[in-house]
Write a protein that binds this DNA or RNA. Sequence first.
DNA 1: TCAAATAACAACTTATAGGTTGTTATTTAT
DNA 2: ATAAATAACAACCTATAAGTTGTTATTTGA
Lengths: 89, 89
Amino acid sequence: MNYTINTLEQIRPILIGFRKTNGLSQKALAEKLGISQQSYQALESAPQKATIERLFKVLSILGIKLQFVEKNKPLENNLSNSELLQDEW
Amino acid sequence: MNYTINTLEQIRPILIGFRKTNGLSQKALAEKLGISQQSYQALESAPQKATIERLFKVLSILGIKLQFVEKNKPLENNLSNSELLQDEW
DNA sequence: TCAAATAACAACTTATAGGTTGTTATTTAT
DNA sequence: ATAAATAACAACCTATAAGTTGTTATTTGA
């Protein structure tokens, strides 16, 4: 399932939801991260403030991949972006 | 086009690539963000260290959506996640 | 060519992320 | 009911993100 992030406020419920579907308490997830429950709680309550590095670790544990998705461009013709690794052709 | 982030090092070339396909210099993008070229350069050279908030702004300008994608689960049966907003059913 | 634009360094300050422990409501099994 | 587990506050410290200006190679266009 895909969860598009339209606003930063959407991250929090997604984290909570996935933590629970993974059967993890804040404390259990915090232990996997090597931090205290309180530290994880701060992260979970305001994930917008976290660094990508930190969120990435959490997402990995929760079995979530990060994806960048190109928004539909208007009629404009873009330059080649072939130097980038792409998922599909 | 989708770009899955498997390692944090993949973010940098994606940002650079999209900035260029958007026809933006570091200075031009920095101006849109309301910061100096040098500040943007620091962000672009180590985006893992940036906060989600900050990256999210950059991605918005570059026309990129952030997506969380559930990795394929093994045979394990997960609890319902219906409280979350989902893209597709 | 050479001037302008671009990319990237360095040194520096301020705001805040990331961590701790202590405490305390609130949930959840027994 | 109550003990254990969970979620969330507060106060605090340290590391570092986020910004600045100054400078300088390197690219690019006229």
